[in-house]
Design a binder for these strands. Sequence first.
DNA 1: GCTTAGGTAGACAGACCTGTCTACATAAAG
DNA 2: CTTTATGTAGACAGGTCTGTCTACCTAAGC
Lengths: 211, 211
Amino acid sequence: MTLAPSVSSAREPAGLPARERILRAAERLFYLNGVRATGIDRVVAAAGVTKVTVYRHFPSKDELIAVYLERRHETWIAWFGEALANARAAQPSAARNAHPLDPLLQVARDWFAQPGFRGCAFANAVAEVGATVPAVAAIAARHKSAVRDAIATLLPAGETARDMAWAATLALDGAVANAQSGVGSAEASLQGLRELLEAVALRARARRRRG
Amino acid sequence: MTLAPSVSSAREPAGLPARERILRAAERLFYLNGVRATGIDRVVAAAGVTKVTVYRHFPSKDELIAVYLERRHETWIAWFGEALANARAAQPSAARNAHPLDPLLQVARDWFAQPGFRGCAFANAVAEVGATVPAVAAIAARHKSAVRDAIATLLPAGETARDMAWAATLALDGAVANAQSGVGSAEASLQGLRELLEAVALRARARRRRG
DNA sequence: GCTTAGGTAGACAGACCTGTCTACATAAAG
DNA sequence: CTTTATGTAGACAGGTCTGTCTACCTAAGC
């Protein structure tokens, strides 16, 4: 079995407290190489601390994974919400073909283009550890729900807004998974996502017209 | 780190040749617990052979993983194509609300309900080993392309059929990922998938009408 | 000044990983 | 009958994994 490929062996700056360095190193390595594929020793090396220090701050690796996901959830959702708001603000509302979910497409494009993009951290964690770490499944569910809520802010409040936001969340998930596995597929994923989002938005408009 | 949870320690029947038993055991364990999380020793035990026998048939674990994915791809696509065809044949074509992608929704429902469902084997493998095993990414791409082709058989051949099938593929991926991670989410995933598929189908009909 | 928290270094236990080794058994094919 | 393929059993090497251990250091708070 091929092991430990692109380890990204950078070190966290020494000025920060140890716990923060550990978490930053874990965030980078866990996301890039997977929570299971990344050993504690690698986190130790990247954080520039010792193993004792890690285990003084976190009782187990599972706990470290849980805290990593918690932080990732908060920072990612904050970024996502802001990016959506910015994209919507920049959207020329009079533009032809403008639909309420278009900002989501732009944000997805930005996300996929980020260096070191490797898909959804939560979906990856679930795929890696499955149901063996209950905390992982729990936070993944919470995360997905928060994504839906963020997307819902793009939509006019109404009876079907929740369903539409949920559908858009699934569409995003599919595009993310595809962009992750992909051979030259970032653009293709975005194309498919656009098709889905436009279709959903059009259908919603038709529904509203019918009343 | 919690290890080896639901190992499903059944044994393959002794009547079959060793290579077949190995592959069947690998198929079950790799899918259920992940390709990385499953050690060769576990495959050995489940297949009822010895390690020497495994390594006489497969030069390395990576190779075994590749063959596993190859087989899974073939059997899964065969099942999928047939299930789609059956669902379409059973579809009362005069039914109200019938749209060409509806069989896909039914097949997804069946798939999610299968015992031991744990998402898309290829997406999971990519999430686990990432780019470290190039064969994994390659076959995952091939698989996704085959899924799109199978879905395209539901659609009237036309200019946009390929795009629609691709969009439906992404929608399915999203629903699968969600059903996998999910706390009581199989039904919610299907609901979202239905919303997406209906929207895509409606838009296609509108396009056709416009000519 | 003394205690306590947080840090360092590195060895260690016990487990699991992949892959190889020796040595023997069986059965079909030439 | 002999070769070759395929199987068995189990030890082994060398590595990685999580988590614990001893022993020492430093700086802030009381």
